[in-house]
Design a protein around this nucleic acid. Structure first.
Lengths: 207, 207
DNA sequence: GACAATATACTACTTTCGTACCATACCAAC
DNA sequence: GTTGGTATGGTACGAAAGTAGTATATTGTC
């Protein structure tokens, strides 16, 4: 398994090198501290896995991936960054990166991630998920508080539908929808549909 | 590392047993197919890691954890289930489980997860994150489309605030808030604040 | 059968939201 | 110094949203 590391912090570079050196199945074939350097290194040396930081001096880590993908698509990319920013993570995922590890991770976590990704799986740091959830306080067991119809309405709210659209979807009048919405807001103590919708998006079954 | 498995599907039990048996550092010390059985097994035999299904015949996996925690709190728990249901995952995370793996995972993923959890880290199946995000289509780079003030307003929308509250928060009049909200909706092509709020919750920086 | 809970539909009313148009002030670019 | 973009505050108005109250049908329980 041939690995390349791209990071502009010498300390990080050093730490990763040491961790990877201890693994029998991993072979560090190159390092880069800047974007341009990284692109030419990756396209030349054909690595299996590349670990890269998001923010470099001349180019973002995602930009490096975009450029290298034009030439070789088999290589796996893992973002190794300090950013728990949701938007950063989203963009990386959208580009199809195979892993996303925070710099606060333990060495064994990095090693696990590299192995998993190399074998075609993905790995996202659990801390990211933690930071993405745990925002809205729990209201209790929904099924206990809401009737099944009210739950359907709440789900529709979470899809961003207005009353007319919900009425159409559930084959009932808009008046009835209003009634249900009022009930939901009262039971869960929300001020308006927007708060209910946000709650629903976090809590309700999507699949 | 002493491990216990709780699952009412014989096949799953069998598969996990085989996978764990191949690992030098893991020792399977017990299995259970029902909740009550599991609770007494766990409290007696003092395992390091317990893998359990969410749905059993007599008791939920989470209920097992609750009962066992009263006696021994050091043990680590990993949910091993077929459910990608958001609500299931949320409840498990809220109870503080250390891992959540889907049954479609590869053996090496399960092994990785057990090792990571044993060492005090967490592990959530990446597929869950995938299913939780990929819902709302991307609108483009927000920073490019919205002004900084509009971004602030959008963020506030994502917190479920109404116009009056946003005005107070940003020290501007409600009229100006309306103006910004209108602009945001127009630029991102949303029908109303609820859709914008849902988008914001998925996309915007929270920390 | 009586009773409670639910789902439905409607009226009436208030509040909030969203848009259109207007106006001022600031700042940076050309 | 004029032009364009942004932030601000305001008026006016129509469309949604939300609440309160009334009414009917259905369902399940005691």
């Amino acid at each position: 398994m041939n690995i390349i590391i791209v990071d502009d912090h010498p300390l990080v570079l050093h730490g990763l090198t040491a961790v990877i050196a201890g693994q029998g199945d991993m072979n560090l074939i190159g390092e880069a501290q800047a974007g341009n350097e990284a692109v030419s290194l990756i396209t030349k040396s054909n690595p299996d896995v590349v670990l890269l930081d998001l923010r470099l001096k001349d180019m973002s880590g995602l930009e490096i991936i975009r450029r290298c993908r034009e030439k070789d698509s088999a290589c796996k990319y893992i973002i190794f960054t300090a950013s728990v920013d949701r938007e950063d993570f989203r963009r990386a995922r959208e580009l199809g990166v195979d892993g996303y590890i925070l710099k606060e991770a333990f060495p064994e976590e990095v090693i696990s991630a590299i192995r998993l990704v190399y074998r075609g799986r993905k790995y996202y740091d659990p801390s990211i998920i933690d930071s993405m959830m745990s925002k809205i306080e729990n209201v209790g067991n929904l099924e206990d508080k809401l009737t099944s119809r009210e739950l359907e309405v709440l789900t529709a709210l979470g899809e961003g539908l207005n009353n007319k659209e919900i009425a159409k979807k559930l084959y009932i009048s808009e008046y009835t929808v209003k009634k249900h919405v009022s009930q939901v807001l009262a039971k869960l103590k929300f001020a308006d549909r927007t708060q209910a919708a946000l709650y629903a998006q976090e809590r309700i079954i999507t699949a």
